[in-house]
């Protein structure tokens, strides 16, 4: 199997603060890979660096075997799309769902827009009744579905997911996670998913990387994590914390 995404020695620096300190990573095509860590671990920065939203100071990123330059071209955006964490902030407040979905099609000059919008909305479980609504007329879960539809409409092969459910209620989270899994299966997508929640990452991903302070702590498979076969204390702490509060008295 070839690598959909391979990252080598990636560094990101913000005003002399090293947010990423030489991270390397390889995601096979069709895999679902998780990035776990606490705030400040650099997991979201890694995602943004891949998307080209923050500049890389050094290191290389290759998508489907093609090394990326500092500027992303249009072809890149048809391969890689992203779903943001906050469904309240990721939809333009003055645009209808229809307009939001039309924009990527217009940029890339697709002619069969009508059909694609219809299909994308159906795919994320929103009927046509949602098509002409504004973001403020949607619930958090519905907004996130629209964001997923927008990411899918260009038919990318890689989806970057930045804590896609952390702003949602537990029951809505389950629906969105199920939707993402179903889409991945149907479209044979590659996922790179960031989360602070170990349970979500083990549920969604086959392999994962634990990060801390801009560095990789360890690489694990989901089954290693489930079997508590971890080598680093930091991971062990995270694992213990995810099991809830234990009274020590």
């Amino acid at each position: 199997m070839n690598a959909a995404l391979s990252i080598d020695g990636l560094e990101v620096v913000f005003d002399r603060f090293r947010a990423l300190k030489g991270v390397s990573l390889e995601v096979k095509s069709g895999d679902s890979f998780g990035l776990v860590g606490e705030s400040g671990s650099g997991k979201s920065t890694l995602l943004k660096a891949i998307a080209g939203l923050v500049p890389a100071a050094s290191g290389s990123i290759a998508v489907n075997g093609k090394t990326l330059g500092t500027r992303r071209d249009k072809a890149f955006y048809r391969e890689v799309q992203m779903v943001f964490q906050d469904p309240y902030g990721s939809l333009h407040p003055r645009q209808t769902v229809d307009r939001l979905l039309q924009e990527p099609l217009a940029i890339h000059g697709f002619a069969d827009g009508e059909k694609r919008i219809q299909r994308a909305l159906d795919e994320v479980g929103l009927g046509t009744g949602f098509r002409f609504r504004y973001a403020h007329q949607l619930s958090g879960g519905q907004r996130q579905r629209v964001a997923i539809a927008r990411a899918l409409i260009l038919e990318p092969s890689i989806l970057l997911l930045d804590e896609p459910t952390s702003a949602l209620d537990a029951s809505v989270q389950a629906e969105v996670l199920n939707l993402l899994e179903e889409i991945r299966r149907r479209r044979k997508l590659t996922f790179l998913m960031v989360s602070h929640d170990l349970a979500i990452v083990t549920h969604m991903c086959e392999r994962l990387m634990v990060m801390q302070n801009g560095e990789a702590v360890e690489n694990l498979t989901a089954s290693q994590l489930i079997g508590h076969r971890v080598t680093k204390d930091y991971t062990r702490n995270l694992l213990r914390a995810s099991e809830g509060f234990v009274r020590t008295a």
Binding site: A170, S171, Q173, A174, E175, L177, N178, E181, E182, L198, A199, I200, T202, H203, M204, L225, I226, L239, S242, E243
Partner: peptide, 22 residues
């Protein structure tokens, strides 16, 4: 029960997750 069930848990693989039928 639904609320308790719908959260992913480490070591309890369920695909898809049970969802809440309100």
């Amino acid at each position: 029960r639904g609320l308790l069930n719908c959260m992913p848990r480490i070591g309890f693989e369920r695909h898809p997750l049970p969802v809440l039928d309100r």
